[in-house]
Simulated assay, not measured.
Amino acid sequence: MSDTPTPYGAAGGLVRVYPARVIERPTPGLVWLHGGGFAAGDIDMPEADHVARTLADAGTTVLSVDYRLAPLPDGWEPPAAEPGRERAGFPAASDDTLAVWDWLHAEAATLGVDPARLAIGGASAGANIAAGAVLRLIANDRALPALVLLAYPTLLAEQPDPDEALRAALDAQPEADRFGRDAVLGMYENYLGGSVVGAPLAAIPGLATADELAEFPPTLIVAGDVDELRVSSEHFARTLAAAGREVEHVIEPGTDHGHLNRPDEGDAASLTLARFAARLAALSS
């Protein structure tokens, strides 16, 4: 495992490389983005480090991106040890992700990675950044991932209300009810530095139409069971299906938002990572 400056290293950015623990090379490669509401999180949190270690142990070389975070929203407590690096809203995190994507392509041989078996993914806000980066690749006719992995993503700024069953589950588990319409909208306004009206599609990937998703890569989405953000992932999955794209949407039983960041709480994180590892292993050159 190593922390490596990337082309955006002048801004303090790093990518942490987790070599696959296998004898045979080349391996699949994965660019991975942690969550944190666009304004929090780091590559040491379990949602980054534990995920990367687990998938590397299963045979994938993982690049965990230390992307630039958005400004802290009003009322958020600053981290105890804030990195000496600028904060910036969209498109900074997306730019950083694409820089790592390009770096992975350029260094594939050195990293022992198969350029035909590259994936991108993330959790929560990181899943948004990953999906948005793919849309930018499509728009610019650039090399696409062979697979997209999204864990409990947020993909819509103006989130539809949950259906009756999900609303009842959230009411019965109020500690999981953290992502109502106002909270989600405020998170995106902070990320964008203003109104979400007219925002770039890469910042709100759930707004993409079927035509705009016509080239989107095969996608696996794992949603939380009692998680209001599930509404946006279900919407995105339906649009991908309408576009004729390969998409699998799984609800991980018994989970609320962020279960990959709590790997010691039951088997849910292990189950989700096993799903991801299986799809990565199935990639063919």
Rank of each mutant, 00 (worst) to 15 (best):
D44A: 12
I204C: 03
D102S: 12
R16P: 04
D211K: 04
P174M: 12
A202G: 04
A52H: 04
V17D: 03
L185K: 13
P26A: 11
G244A: 05
A274H: 13
G206H: 03
T4A: 14
L33C: 05
E265W: 09
A70C: 00
L14Y: 08
A81I: 10
L185D: 04
H249A: 15
H259M: 11
A176T: 03
H50R: 07
A139L: 07
R53S: 05
S270R: 10
T239A: 00
P7Y: 11
S233L: 08
G193S: 08
R181W: 11
G13R: 15
P91M: 11
P218Y: 04
G37E: 06
A172E: 15
M45P: 02
R181E: 11
P153V: 00
V184D: 08
A109D: 07
E246V: 12
D102M: 02
P73M: 13
A106E: 15
R279S: 05
L135P: 00
P19L: 07
D225C: 11
E212Q: 14
D74F: 05
G35S: 01
P46D: 03
D227A: 08
D3F: 05
A133D: 06
A278G: 05
G266T: 04
A269Q: 03
W101T: 06
V196G: 12
P79S: 05
A58H: 02
Y8G: 15
G41T: 08
P7C: 14
D267E: 15
V65S: 06
G194K: 09
L240Y: 04
P79Q: 05
A183I: 13
D44H: 14
A130L: 00
P217N: 04
E47W: 01
G75M: 10
N190K: 11
L156P: 05
